[in-house]
Amino acid sequence: MTPAGSLLTADGLRKVYGPTTALDGADFSIHPGEIVAVMGPSGSGKSTLLHCLAGIVRPDAGEITYNGQRLTDMNDTALSALRRSEFGFVFQFGQLVPELTCVENVALPLRLNGAKRKDAERTALTWMERLEVDDVRDKRPGQASGGQGQRVAVARALVTSPRVLFADEPTGALDSLNGERVMELLTDAARSTNAAVVLVTHETRVAAYSDREIVVRDGKSRDMERLV
């Protein structure tokens, strides 16, 4: 039951961590260029859904298809390669390498893909300009503000021109003004590259930047669009 034209779909995902059931038959689908907010109370399994969709965590049951490939059939090396080239990630915090400068952090995914340092940093800088953080290029993450750091993280997530951007509470550690700026820049950038965005958040004002909303409750997903 893959919706026509969708880029990434999941069907009947189940994932159990020890005694807790994180996902209990969750479904998901996203089209290219679409921004989908995944909401739900804490502990509902929304982060686990994101981890499964991104191929970071293997579901116990269910199927995930990306662009015609079944993620559940791929081995770790293939998944890592997929994440490096097709996906981008933004987390709440603790994702930037504290020793590297901001521009080096942004360039990191390109370099992991084998790009030359100069080229990687040049591309990184254009993304930093787009996210209005080129002024902290040579600072270390610890010397930049929280909002800047998060925009650097967004730049890093987008630098490989991923087809899907996974953002897990990207504004969770920011105040509303900074959070909204990050969301504006993130969604603008994603739309300009036609990247799909899976946006996990518990803030409705952040979710309002999405095109569509999924609510996860007790490990089950609910597509809110079908209700209206």
Partner: peptide, 11 residues
């Protein structure tokens, strides 16, 4: 956390 994040983006 950092190592997990690096793993996520395919390191």
């Amino acid at each position: 956390r950092l190592l997990a994040a690096l793993t996520a983006f395919g390191t």
